[in-house]
């Protein structure tokens, strides 16, 4: 009984096999990204590390590409970019979405209408289209791709945050605090924010996979990471023409993307399920 929310949350999360799998995948991703310099057998951009286009072998577990670069090393180093892209894009969406959603729900009136209608308008374009437009304006680079994916995600985060915050604003405790004389800043940061964070952390975990996928997509289109960067989407892009001769060039980076996305989704679902039980004793 006396264990806090966090303790019971953790227990419920561990009981969920999908959640455990997602945690392992994300842990693996973070691990390889952190230890890339030690565990990668070759430098990711070193040409002629092996013969060109050799299939997977003991020397090159994932084979080599058209420049003789080791695919395993490139996939390992790619995890760094993937994590970076995911974290920064989600970070941008989350922070801006929280700001917009909380402001709209708390202020109400014209502020609310303006902010939410604006996000409705952005909502009516697909995220990829917004991201494409951003990159078209800013120019193709990995940094701009992150920014674009982050910006494109804002309406969804804002909408979710707004809905969650609106529920809290309508609860009696909120009115009790207002009548106790609580100021705007106190209400928003000390009461509203902690109460929407659980919901938003689920959205962010699920959004991570979307961001990874979107960034890989932009790189695949040549609008994100530029060669010779070992980004998974860019690797897929350059492997496209060789799909018949060297299928492993697509298999491994593609598999890495799929595994990451699956892991994020399963973890997000598990967090949501564990959160649903937080009201229970």
């Amino acid at each position: 009984m006396a264990t806090g929310i966090a303790g019971s949350f953790w227990r419920r999360l561990r009981r969920n096999p999908g959640g455990v799998f997602g945690l392992l995948v994300l842990g693996l991703l973070v691990g390889t990204a952190a230890l890339a310099d030690w565990i990668a057998p070759y430098a990711p951009t070193r040409m002629g590390a092996g013969h060109r286009l050799t299939p997977p072998s003991l020397a090159h577990w994932f084979g080599t590409d058209e420049f003789g670069r080791d695919v395993l090393s490139r996939v390992i180093y790619g995890s760094r970019l993937t994590l970076l892209v995911g974290a920064i894009a989600v970070g941008i969406s989350l922070v801006a979405g929280l700001a917009v959603g909380l402001t709209a729900a708390y202020c109400g009136g014209w502020t609310e209408r303006l902010l939410m209608r604006a996000s409705d308008v952005l909502f009516s374009f697909t995220e990829t289209l917004i991201a494409l437009a951003c990159v078209a304006v800013l120019g193709p680079s990995l940094e701009n791709a992150m920014l674009a994916v982050g910006l494109a995600g804002i309406p969804f985060y804002a909408r979710t945050c707004y809905a969650a915050a609106l529920v809290e604003c309508g609860k009696p405790y909120f009115e009790a605090l207002i009548s106790a004389g609580a100021g705007h800043l106190r209400l928003i940061t000390l009461h509203l924010l902690p109460n929407v964070l659980p919901t938003m952390s689920v959205v962010a975990t699920l959004g991570l996979s979307g961001a990874v996928l979107a960034a890989a997509g932009l790189s695949f289109l040549g609008l994100g990471a530029q060669p010779p960067a070992s980004e998974w989407g860019a690797m897929l892009s350059s492997a496209r023409e060789l799909i018949n001769r060297a299928p492993w060039l697509m298999l491994f980076p593609g598999g890495a993307i799929a595994l990451t996305v699956l892991g994020c989704n399963l973890l997000g679902d598990a967090i949501r399920e564990a959160m649903d039980g937080r009201g229970r004793t």
């Binding site: 605090l177 009548s179 902690p194 109460n195």
Partner: peptide, 23 residues
């Protein structure tokens, strides 16, 4: 207003919703 309203406080019907669940 914030200062003056301290003199009037409310108790609501739903006791669970009357308290911030995080505090």
């Amino acid at each position: 207003l914030r200062h003056a309203r301290a003199g009037v406080q409310m108790v609501f019907q739903d006791p669970l919703a009357s308290l911030d669940p995080c505090w």
